[in-house]
């Protein structure tokens, strides 16, 4: 009997297979693309995401701030201002009420900073052992403003790839805590990207954006290369690496290009406006380490290459399933 494994939820190729299987049961449905959120008539943008993180509180955030930032970011990267949120709470019998209140307070903090209204919700308590403490689901609704045409299909050769902050910080923080590593300076980048992204939206050369969550920067680039049928080349030395993230990944044998961020966006922009975009991003605290990391090419469509710090070149791939630490 084939069963689901953790890998099916890890954002890599197994997840893609699972999603295709599910979509296959909805013939003729209107899911048109595989972007981070759906754009409905009249510019309404909607997304839904479930949050199951262990530990619930981590350096740099908690499941409460994460569940708002994550869904708000999915709207933001398509140019939609997050306006409303619906929140589903599934908690396990025996879960400390004080913890729940603390997480809700932190969620509310992000909402109020962004001007997002909580408009509806649901709570379910399940018997002990049927949920890992607390699961949160948020559905975010927003509206497209000035820039309505953002999407993968806009990418064309000559465009420039910009990264707003170091990749993989959230994933490395969670992995370190899960595998009992204490690393100085390691922190999740969990943050709402809208205030920075809002500034970039007037740029006409903006092609598309993605937040580099599950599967990391590597997955975002590979999906772009595959779906737009273009090639991408990035330079390892131009990526604004976070030192603590890189050392956790070295220790555990994980690829920082495959680790999730929760406040890090990859942006494709025309060559002409790349410098303006970089300057705008850098003006905002979330983008102070923003960097141009590579470009789009008409050569080798479907493939992402990285020029390594050693001067060699190799392929960038998507992770397959759960990223597991190595042996020695």
């Amino acid at each position: 009997m084939e069963t689901l494994t953790i890998g099916h939820g890890a954002g890599g190729s197994l997840t893609q297979e699972l999603v295709s299987m599910i979509l296959g049961r909805f013939p003729g449905n209107p899911v048109r693309d595989r972007e981070d959120c759906a754009i409905l008539p009249e510019g309404i943008a909607v997304t839904i995401d479930g949050y199951t993180v262990t530990p619930l509180t981590f350096e740099g955030g908690d499941i409460g701030s994460l569940c708002i930032c994550g869904s708000a970011n999915d709207l933001s990267v398509r140019g939609a201002k997050p306006l409303y949120i619906a929140l589903g709470v599934i908690a396990e019998e025996g879960f400390p009420l004080g913890d729940l209140i603390r997480f809700m307070t932190s969620a509310a903090g992000v909402c109020s900073a962004l001007g997002i209204e909580l408009v509806t919700g649901d709570t379910k308590i399940v018997p002990r052992g049927q949920a890992d403490g607390l699961f949160l689901t948020t559905c975010a609704i927003g509206r497209i403003g000035t820039h309505s045409g953002l999407g993968t299909s806009n990418i064309s050769p000559g465009d420039v790839i910009l990264l707003t902050s170091p990749p993989g910080m959230h994933g490395a923080t969670i992995a370190a805590s899960r595998y009992g590593l204490k690393v100085e300076g390691l922190s999740s980048d969990c943050a709402a990207l809208w205030p920075m992204i809002e500034k970039l939206l007037p740029l006409e050369g903006l092609r598309c954006m993605r937040d580099c969550t599950r599967g990391g920067l590597g997955t975002v680039l590979c999906e772009w290369a595959e779906s737009a049928d273009i090639g991408i080349e990035i330079d390892e030395t131009l990526i604004p690496w976070d030192e603590a993230t890189v050392s956790v990944c070295d220790l555990l044998g994980l690829d920082p290009l495959h680790m999730a961020g929760e406040g890090c966006a990859a942006i494709v922009i025309s060559q002409e406006e790349a410098a303006d975009a970089l300057e705008l991003a850098k003006k905002h605290p979330l983008g102070k380490r923003a960097s141009v990391i590579g470009s789009v090419t008409g050569e080798h469509p479907g493939y992402v290459g990285i020029h390594t710090a050693s001067g060699g070149t190799r392929l960038v791939d998507k992770p397959v399933g759960e990223e597991l630490p190595r042996i020695c």
Binding site: D255, I306, H307, T308, A309, S310, G311, G312, T313, R314
Partner: peptide
């Protein structure tokens, strides 16, 4: 060796 792209060198 692979990750650093050394094979291409």
């Amino acid at each position: 060796i692979f990750r650093q792209g050394l094979r291409s060198l």
